[in-house]
């Protein structure tokens, strides 16, 4: 089983996250980079599948040099090798062009199953799984909280607003996972040391036959026109109970459309 996990490095949600004023992209210098939390669940699921069915787990990342830290984390958890797509030309890619670039790499390296977190904590578009499956011409199973591999097909539970759907898909397929699917393992100290010796293949856009005009800021089909800091939190409103406190609280909640 050739298992590929897409992993994204994102700014640590515990730190202040900013956009750059010049080109309105993420300011990667301003925050510590960490592996996108949901992608850790995807890595865990990949390792679980490998342990049950054999095969190899490849980590795939698109991002600047610094993203190699997130690759190392996934390798320390137990993934076998990594592919790092890194090129200045990719800077500023939106979801659509990112899916194009990753799909080109996936076509090149091949896969039986592609796993990824259902969304990233920075952009939060949650669209990549669908875009990848469309570009690769394979089934998409999104928001999975349970995956079972059965020969050349998979069975999964998809989380929905009303419970879950049971779905089946033939392999190869693209699967995005939610945090209910498993409990990601800690890398072991030995895993951390072993990760340093595992192969990481560096690819530039030309290596994956990616058309540089279709990626980066210029190739993006969406544009960040403007942005502003989140407004500072307003001072709380104190309701004095003069016999009508309950009504006032209810009116407040109604005005905010909570009730």
């Amino acid at each position: 089983m050739n298992i590929v996990v897409c992993v994204k490095q994102v700014p640590d949600t515990a730190t202040e996250r900013k956009l750059r004023s010049d080109d309105k992209t993420l300011d990667r210098e301003a925050a510590d980079g960490v592996i996108n939390e949901l992608d850790e669940y995807a890595v865990e699921e990949a390792l679980t599948i490998k342990e049950a069915h054999g095969g190899e787990v490849t980590v795939l990342t698109m991002g600047p040099e610094k993203a190699s830290e997130s690759i190392r984390k996934a390798l320390a958890m137990g993934a076998d090798k990594a592919v790092h797509l890194s090129d200045e030309a990719l800077h500023g890619s939106d979801a659509l062009s990112t899916s194009y670039a990753l799909a080109q790499v996936l076509k090149k390296i091949g896969f039986d199953i592609v796993l990824l977190g259902s969304e990233s904590t920075d952009a939060r578009t949650g669209m990549l799984a669908a875009m990848l499956s469309e570009r690769l011409g394979v089934p998409q199973v999104t928001l999975a909280n349970k995956v079972e591999i059965d020969g050349s097909s998979l069975k999964a539970q998809r989380l929905t607003d009303y419970g879950f759907d049971r779905v089946e898909a033939s392999l190869p397929a693209v699967v995005s996972v939610v945090e209910k699917i498993n409990e990601p393992r800690y890398p072991s100290f030995k895993g951390i040391m072993a990760a340093k010796k595992k192969p990481v293949e560096k690819l530039a856009v030309a290596d994956a036959e990616i058309d540089a005009a279709k990626v980066g800021l210029a190739g993006a089909s969406t544009e960040v026109v403007d942005f502003a800091d989140a407004p500072p939190r307003e001072k709380g409103q104190i309701v004095k109970d003069e016999g009508d406190g309950g009504v006032k609280v209810a009116e407040f909640l109604a005005s905010k459309k909570f009730i």
């Binding site: 800690y186 890398p187 072991s188 100290f189 030995k190």
Partner: peptide
């Protein structure tokens, strides 16, 4: 057990016996 699986229960002992 979690610490053990992470490799923290044998840190000062030789790697050839499974230590850190």
């Amino acid at each position: 057990r979690t610490l053990g699986r992470a490799g923290l229960l044998g840190l000062p002992y030789p790697e050839e016996f499974g230590g850190g």
